[in-house]
Write a protein that binds this DNA or RNA. Sequence first.
DNA 1: CTGTTACTGTGTCATCTGACACAGTTTTTT
DNA 2: AAAAAACTGTGTCAGATGACACAGTAACAG
Lengths: 191, 191
Amino acid sequence: MQMMFEYFSSFGDLSPSNMEFLLSHIQQGKLNKGEKLIRANQTVGSCYFFEEGFLHYYTHNDFGNRITLKVISPNYCWTIMESFVNQSPTLDECIALTDVRYCELKRADYMAIKSKSIELSNFIQNITEQILSAKLLEAKKKSSTTVEERYMDLLHTHPELVQEVPVHVIASWIGTSRETLHRIRRRLSVA
Amino acid sequence: MQMMFEYFSSFGDLSPSNMEFLLSHIQQGKLNKGEKLIRANQTVGSCYFFEEGFLHYYTHNDFGNRITLKVISPNYCWTIMESFVNQSPTLDECIALTDVRYCELKRADYMAIKSKSIELSNFIQNITEQILSAKLLEAKKKSSTTVEERYMDLLHTHPELVQEVPVHVIASWIGTSRETLHRIRRRLSVA
DNA sequence: CTGTTACTGTGTCATCTGACACAGTTTTTT
DNA sequence: AAAAAACTGTGTCAGATGACACAGTAACAG
């Protein structure tokens, strides 16, 4: 869990005793390729930090088609916020696309950490604010770029993801069909 | 600022003394139609709660075209998170589409509130978590609906907005052109 | 009140998109 | 090892999209 320690450290300083307290509540887990982390109708009881591997987080539209909401890469903190915060069941699912190693913080522990001291509470608040800010930037980027720009950006920032994740999953995530994405890939490989 | 009090109260209980402390830092403001709340290259120093009127929050894409990021309605808490949290200048802008009444919480006061007590710190954290959750649901909805479905949803949930906001602003927000949105409106009015 | 600017709505056209079908390859299951 | 399932990539086609141009109306500025 060295990666998780470094992830937390990037949000600012925390006294060693509080960092120790925080890390002491983390549990490590593994998933095999094809295993589900979250199944439909489940209430999400943890937040997760992924150290290795890729996951596919998806929902279904009114026609039952699978829509990719996120392809999760290593070094990423994630949960289904609605279900985690409000303790309501989710219809979304999350499945391992490769073997995965992760750290898990259960909701009861998360609440205990927030209530331990104002330093820890504000530290968690800083993390939440940064995550919210990142989500808004992601949404802004999606609104102001074309599908081709989004794919090219992925090629530059996540080349391993593009290698390991099926084209139809990536296509859905960036907002197009697998046919159109194949045409984009052909166009980019000719240039 | 009764609307703001009710907005805060919807996030759970807060002791009267802490609610009083929170509300005592709120300043009220007004904008006339056409006035900018946020200009390009400004560092955002407050978060805002809008009680009346509509605003247009937009950025520009690489071609200089204006892209709507949000049409802001009454009863909505908003800031440009990246600029507010990291104190970096933003290139985005926010302009009043109608006359606007709002409440403002300056960043220094926000920090003071978070540091006053663990109850207030956790209360602010609850609000941030709910806002993050709502943003993720909004993004999920955008990914799994068509432009027409999004417009129909707006007709049902925000009929005044559809009346008062220019069609090209709404079109950009829901991810289409004003020509396509006019065709959708024609199709919906014939049915 | 008049002129200017912004907005609304429509038609035309070239281009793009996605559904469908298909063939081939790779991965998984038996 | 063989069969089945999943994935990759391409071609065809109908329909949708957005840019552009245009005419008319509403709102705003002088």
